[in-house]
């Protein structure tokens, strides 16, 4: 039986089989940055606050003067959960840990956390330092993941 279309084998590597976002115009600098291995974040020129997710106007001061800056790629675990039930490609990885990450620059991202033991949630520490990394899902789309820093 041939493997499903979204799970085809290229040489030794298995193609990315999880949900792949369809980048939007508003977040283009983020998606371009991800492809280049950089964490690009929207920042308000007027109040200097970084916000996540990307906005047409700043959610803090409502300025429409938004710039994109490269983030440090560092953050801290705000909270997490261990997913034992999932759909599609993620089902094969369950259990896995999802987490909200407080960015050093401010505001928060959601992710699948790497470098943790899902079978031992008590060992995962809220407040632990994490670092971003990117995985190429396709030639055009890379996805941000966060890993607990050693």
């Amino acid at each position: 039986m041939p493997p499903p279309a979204d799970h085809h084998v290229k040489g030794e590597t298995v193609a990315y089989n999880k949900p792949i976002p369809e980048p939007d115009p508003l977040g283009k600098p983020f998606w371009d940055g991800a492809k280049a291995g950089k964490l690009m974040l929207p920042r308000c020129v007027d109040c200097s606050r970084v916000h996540w997710y990307p906005r047409h106007i700043c959610p803090s001061c409502h300025s429409d003067n938004i710039e994109w800056v490269e983030g440090s790629g560092e953050g801290y675990i705000h909270t997490f959960a261990v997913q034992h039930r999932a759909m599609g490609g993620w089902a094969e990885e369950a259990p896995f840990v999802t987490a909200y990450i407080d960015l050093v620059e401010g505001d928060r991202m959601f992710t699948v956390l790497r470098g943790v033991d899902p079978k031992n949630p008590e060992s995962i520490k809220i407040g632990a330092k994490v670092r971003v990394e990117f995985e190429a899902a396709t030639d055009d789309v890379s996805i941000a993941f966060w890993r607990v820093a050693e």
Binding site: P19, P21, W52, Y53, A81, Q83, A86, T98, F110, V112
Partner: peptide
Amino acid sequence: LYSNPYGVTGAPSNYSHALTR
């Protein structure tokens, strides 16, 4: 764009984060 790619499926997978906190 920014949540669903990470394998969350419906309310239970979200609300658990609140209990942990």
